[in-house]
């Protein structure tokens, strides 16, 4: 009985310390020191929140760079992965379909290799990045659709290539949403395109 009462008191105390005080104090520090990050690294354009640096958005139009395929169709609540095993028939057909779509969309040869990140779905379903190689392969399509010189779009891509962090950690990558937003800045969109921006 004594243990039971001590258990209840300990549980209440720790709920207050670790369950209320700790997250509140941490939120205070986080908001003070890293305001932007603590609130989801949101991106504003024309006074409107258009996304988060860290969360992928679906892009299918030819004038934008495409993100990695998402098993959860880029849903955020919740997001999801395919969880398909290495001998899954569904995985096999998805990979083939994704590769074909990427080749067709970018007018690549029928046997051109497609970077792995564009045929395999990500773990979060919201991977904001693609490999630099995948970005480069999309330059011609984006440039042609927008009527901009390939060199100009290519240079923009190179500007957005992030090397491994501090030269060591992780992999090189390109943030698709940030790149696409910069792309829209590169050439102000024509009247019919602006509908999507303003909403």
């Amino acid at each position: 009985m004594k243990l039971f009462i001590q258990s209840i008191r300990q549980t209440i105390l720790w709920t207050i310390i670790a369950g209320v005080a700790y997250p509140l104090v941490m939120t205070g520090f986080a908001q003070l020191l890293f305001h932007k990050q603590a609130n989801g690294s949101l991106i504003e354009r024309n006074g409107q929140i258009v996304g988060s640096e860290l969360i992928a958005q679906q892009f299918t139009g030819d004038k934008y760079f495409w993100p990695r395929p998402s098993a959860g169709s880029y849903a955020t609540v919740p997001s999801g992965a395919s969880n398909l095993g290495p001998t899954s028939q569904a995985l096999q057909s998805n990979v083939t379909a994704n590769a074909t779509a990427f080749r067709t969309g970018n007018k690549l040869a029928a046997d051109a290799p497609v970077p792995a990140d564009m045929v395999f779905t990500s773990a979060s379903g919201l991977d904001p990045h693609i490999s630099p190689e995948s970005a480069r392969l999309q330059v011609a399509r984006v440039a042609a659709t927008r009527g901009i010189a390939e060199e100009q779009v290519g240079a923009l891509v190179e500007k957005f290539v992030e090397p491994p962090q501090w030269g060591i950690l992780g992999e090189a990558r390109v943030n698709v949403l940030e790149l696409n937003l910069a792309l829209d800045e590169l050439q102000p969109k024509k009247a019919e395109g602006s509908v999507l921006v303003k909403g």
Partner: peptide, 28 residues
């Protein structure tokens, strides 16, 4: 406490806000 601060600096969220509705760049 230390790890929390480091993680937030990298972009892990820490707030009590409702979910944000962002306007998609390309609606579909």
């Amino acid at each position: 406490v230390i790890v929390t601060i480091v993680l937030v600096s990298q972009g892990v969220v820490q707030n009590f806000k409702p979910y944000t509705d962002a306007r998609l760049v390309e609606a579909y």
